[in-house]
Design a protein around this nucleic acid. Structure first.
Lengths: 221, 221
DNA sequence: CCTCCATGTTTACAGGAGAAACTTATGCAG
DNA sequence: CTGCATAAGTTTCTCCTGTAAACATGGAGG
């Protein structure tokens, strides 16, 4: 990469360079509040140059989000090493990887799930998000096949697992998981509670088929 | 309230009026991207007038977040009518109320949990957030006392429940709960799964003792 | 060699944050 | 009642952003 040396008027691959700069800034900031002009500045081009590659600021943001989903997917698959003892352990590893990704890339993570990254506008972004979500679905279906997870609708498990992980991630990066509220190790603790609800036991609980939830008999201690 | 009639130079209660206008805008927008000038404009004062009441834009945002926590708390207590059959049902009602609050006030909800509403800066905001969180804690402790919830560390239940509800809320207001991903009724379905993990059964599962396994320190900015 | 065109740059404009200086009403001392 | 200190609003200013339009440059194809 020739960076500060020549600058031959035509950058060569400005699009990629802008994305790289923006990702760098996003990797440290919280709020993806970076300004397009500063991205251009740090990339060493004029403030209007980015408009030759992205129609507007939001188009760049969506592209960043798309890359974020791809990277998150890589983190997830990387975390689920086949050596783990159970599907439950796989879920745990994937969940922690997802939260770890969020903590290491708070701005990017927030962007990915913000309404600025509107998936109804950009089909490629939508595809990337769906593909990453598919990793979770695959894991859940595998867990149901091997008897680890309860035989409820897989979409229910997906909603629960996703919401839990996303919620922990968002709370973590917003610094809301204060010890006075949720203890010293809230993330594994919360995940264990959820997994207790997802995992099969020898006394299966009700099936949340439609609206009504059946009565729970809680034996006295 | 004399609003558009006289305008006697001194508004009378501009601070409250600004907050009201901002809340109105927040109640409809998604992104609390409102500009301070527009708040002033809609309130009918000059663009610099707000600075007599709020040091800067973020100070106003924190005040809005504080009010949001108070209102959310009212929603929660209002939802837990004493007629409900079980503590589990109380939790379910409170969770749905919280998510409903978020869906009706997406901008405000997002603001409340964003890093723009930095609770380490404003003690009053911190207090309001803690007070609302206390409603959840009380519910969980009550549930443990009456035998509904498992006798694990209450902070684990709190982390799990909070993350689940917050995650569902954030996903819902970001329009991420697409049916193709999580089914038609993801919110009750996910909550039931979690509650199965929180509630006591005749075969209690393991205890996630506080000797946490993995490290997840999130760097604060 | 000349000309086209993608990719740069400069210039221009509307709008926002916030600071400083100015204006108006109000309350209080005498 | 007079006169001023002060809180609260207004005007004006500077610096910044997004984005459009006009202009420049240099490599590719005739």
């Amino acid at each position: 990469m020739r960076e500060t040396t020549d600058r031959p008027y035509h950058h060569g691959d400005l699009r990629r360079a802008l994305i790289g700069t923006a990702l760098d800034m996003l990797a440290k900031d919280q709020n993806w509040t970076f300004t397009l002009r500063e991205v251009a500045r740090r990339t060493g081009v004029s403030h209007a140059a980015p408009y030759k590659h992205f129609r507007d600021r939001e188009t760049l943001l969506r592209e960043l989000a798309r890359i974020g989903f791809i990277r998150l997917g890589e983190s997830l698959t990387g975390a689920m090493s086949p050596g783990l003892p159970s599907t439950r352990a796989h879920f745990m590893a994937a969940a922690q990887a997802c939260i770890g990704f969020a903590c290491q890339n708070p701005g990017l993570y927030r962007l990915m799930f913000s309404s600025d990254a509107d998936k109804t506008i950009d089909p490629q972004l939508h595809d990337a998000a769906m593909k990453t979500f598919g990793i979770l679905l695959d894991l859940l279906e595998r867990g149901q096949r091997d008897g680890s997870f309860r035989p409820v609708a897989v979409s229910a498990l997906a909603a629960a697992g996703w919401a839990q992980v996303h919620g922990l991630a968002m709370l973590a990066i917003s610094n809301q998981l204060l010890e006075e509220k949720v203890g010293a190790t809230p993330i594994p603790a919360a995940l264990e509670v959820l997994l207790d609800g997802m995992c099969r036991t020898d006394c299966p609980v009700h099936v949340p088929a439609s609206g009504g939830h059946s009565e729970h008999t809680c034996p006295t201690r």
